[in-house]
Design a protein around this nucleic acid. Structure first.
Length: 256
DNA sequence: AAGGCATACAACCGCCTTTCA
DNA sequence: ATGAAAGGCGGTTGTATGCCT
């Protein structure tokens, strides 16, 4: 509370990272793993704040980051997920292996938001009707901010387990637990069949929420550490579910 | 060729949540 | 129970690059 930004301390470098700094950071993390970002710069010999190191690693240096253009499939998935989840980039990124929240956020801001703003056509409406009543395509079904559930959130210890996938695994937790339940609640709200009672109660307390195949709230470590293929399968299944639910929503609501 | 403008994206900021002593 | 530290997230900014006139 009321702390100054760590990067504002005098003597610390800011701005673009040099290749040498990247190398120092990568070498350090390969040796010691992620986490304890506060001490990373000191130990790695960097004149950066810990937060800056974390950001650089998460958004740029991690070996599992997929670089290059967003594919059409990813593009489509981002749009659909954004429709359901809003600006919750980390959740969206959790469903796009190798993509970072920052990258998706940038992509959205520079490409998709403009594209969608100019595309005022309405779902399944005649051009006539659309031009009459559509101001904007419905793209927001926002929930209150989700509560982080400690059961699923990785602890500081967890994040220091030496893996290169701390962030990714955290996202996987989300992808298969927390936000699935959340999306389920969201679907329930939209479909007018509240899962019963306070959705936050469900979200937090109901250990047996079943979203459908491939999206159950699970607490098993085995399930949390899914293999890459399993993860991709699950993502694909969830994608299909999103499509189905979206179709359902479209047939139940008039969007404009 | 040069200047202005638009775009893309890396990086920073500030706030919130979680953890732990 | 409480407060500080650390991690995480979304919004915003700064700058490099490309395109257009």
């Amino acid at each position: 509370m009321g702390r100054t930004a760590c990067c504002s301390r005098v003597g610390l470098r800011r701005g673009p990272w040099t290749p040498r700094e990247d190398t120092l950071l990568v070498n350090y993390i390969q040796l010691h793993g992620e986490g304890h970002w506060r001490i990373v710069p000191k130990k790695a010999g960097l004149l950066r704040c810990g937060k800056s190191c974390r950001l650089r690693w998460m958004n740029y240096l991690r070996p599992d980051i997929k670089r290059g253009n967003i594919t059409a499939d990813e593009d489509d998935l981002i749009i659909r997920l954004h429709t359901l989840l809003g600006n919750r980039w980390s959740l969206i990124a959790g469903r796009l292996p190798g993509r970072t929240d920052n990258e998706i956020k940038n992509y959205w801001n520079s490409h998709l938001s403009k594209r969608l703003n100019t595309n005022t056509s309405c779902y399944k409406k005649s051009p006539k009707e659309a031009s009459k009543s559509c101001e904007k395509p419905k793209s927001k079904i926002h929930l209150p901010k989700p509560i982080r559930v400690s059961q699923f959130s990785s602890t500081k210890k967890d994040s220091f387990d030496g893996g290169s996938t701390s962030m990714a695994s955290g996202s996987e937790y989300s992808a298969h637990g927390e936000d699935c339940a959340e999306v389920f609640n969201l679907y329930s709200l939209e479909l007018g069949r509240d899962g019963g009672g306070n959705k936050d109660d469900d979200f937090v307390n109901n250990d047996s929420i079943i979203i459908g195949k491939g999206c159950e709230k699970s607490t098993s470590l085995d399930q949390l550490s899914l293999g890459k293929d399993d993860m991709l399968d699950k993502i694909f299944e969830e994608y299909q579910q999103l499509l189905e639910v979206e179709d359902h929503l479209q047939s139940n609501f008039s969007f404009c």
